[in-house]
Design a protein around this nucleic acid. Structure first.
Lengths: 226, 226
DNA sequence: ATAAATATTTAGGCAAACCTAATTATTTAT
DNA sequence: ATAAATAATTAGGTTTGCCTAAATATTTAT
């Protein structure tokens, strides 16, 4: 690498994966992100996480307090958002242009998100018509890392009788997405909460005039707009 | 990696780069490909090449005779062609869909060619209309690693006195095609190279018994068969 | 408040893919 | 035919990114 001045802005795929994981963990938990939660998310050992954490801290991408977890710096957050931007644009491309199913694209996008070329990302964005949401309903950050924000509510937060529209799904595993397909639940599907079991929060909802049972795990992973 | 049986078909980006380099070297030289020619091509040291060569030989991708260079096995050649297929499909995508210039795409395609997904390659090929040649006029191997029979040559590659037949045009702009029409140059037009200016490679060719001047830009964009 | 349980870090190893320096084999030139 | 030049290999070292096992810090439970 002859362009030494660029080195601080160039990250390895592994570094990028850590930034992304920490970003996603920060979205649900507040306070420092623990070593163990990162190791669980990335399916690596805690010792490996500690090691990488030190490198990211050296590069000023995270603030790190020994034994008290990490937190992305502004620079780290921006970098994470640019990776997420790439990931979601590629997912959109795979589903909308190459006829992939939305449950097939995650692993490929995990590879494509590490391709390095600012121009490629911008041309791809333009080619796709500057989409705001990926095929899972997740918002696509713009070139500056800004997210379009809609009030993201989990289905599990609704009360009996509430009506809502599905706006996104958190779990992007193939099994979950196939399950949703089978139940005819997709982006913009209209639903109504019929009942919530008090002992395990299992929810009965109405979809296309049929009632469906959803576990708490499922309703936690479905985002809706009232 | 849980799919152990797939391991022998999975290669690292570096291994893939070596296979590709050896393939390209075999196209121009015959006999064993030397350690030094590989090291020159990949801009690495000879010691690194020797090391990698041993690994590729262990995986039966090349035949290796100590001190006498290497040669791709059938398996190695097929793998190289699949990587080249990906490279050229991505170049085609970048130029034809994302409006890159053909001189900007190489480095990005070098990254994209290592993305692992058989389905992605096939869907991309389909999406692009199963192109036979990349934006540089190089043939794109099919899914089985077969190359189209008559590789295209640029008019600009011919020498004084050569006779040839036009087989394609790279630049599909209206102005270029109108220019060709005016000169009576079309598919299967027979031409002969009369002269090539040494200072700017302007070419004088004979078409239908009339001589015509063509700039380097023009001759770069005309494909011919000898 | 202290012991047990849990989480984190440190220490030491390994494989991939590069490097330099030293050695050995091959090729070329006298 | 042999010495000099060149090419290839081996030996040993580095960084990244992972690992296991041991040590240490923090948290929880009595």
């Amino acid at each position: 690498m002859y362009l030494y001045f660029l080195l601080k802005y160039m990250f390895t795929p592994s570094e990028e994966n850590y930034l992304k994981a920490i970003f996603h963990l920060q979205q649900v938990a507040d306070g420092g992100i623990s070593t163990s939660s990162i190791s669980e998310k990335l399916d690596t050992k805690a010792a490996s996480v500690t090691e990488m954490i030190k490198r990211l801290a050296d590069k000023n991408l995270i603030d790190y307090q020994k034994y008290y977890g990490v937190k992305l710096t502004e620079a780290g957050k921006k970098q994470a958002l640019l990776i997420i931007r790439k990931h979601r644009l590629w997912e959109y491309f795979l589903v909308k242009r190459l006829n992939f199913n939305w449950d097939e694209v995650h692993d490929i996008a995990e590879q494509l998100e590490h391709i390095k070329s600012a121009k490629l990302v911008e041309e791809l964005d333009l080619f796709l018509g500057r989409p705001e949401y990926d095929p899972h309903g997740d918002p696509i950050p713009d070139a500056d890392g800004n997210l379009p924000k809609y009030p993201k509510k989990r289905l599990s937060e609704l009360k009996k009788g509430d009506q809502a529209i599905c706006k996104g799904f958190n779990d992007s595993s193939a099994s979950f997405l196939q399950f949703l397909d089978k139940q005819n639940i997709g982006l913009d599907t209209q639903i109504q909460v019929i009942n919530i079991e008090s002992f395990d929060e299992t929810m009965t909802i109405l979809v296309a005039e049929k009632s469906i049972l959803l576990s708490k795990t499922a309703t936690d992973n479905i985002y809706v707009k009232l």
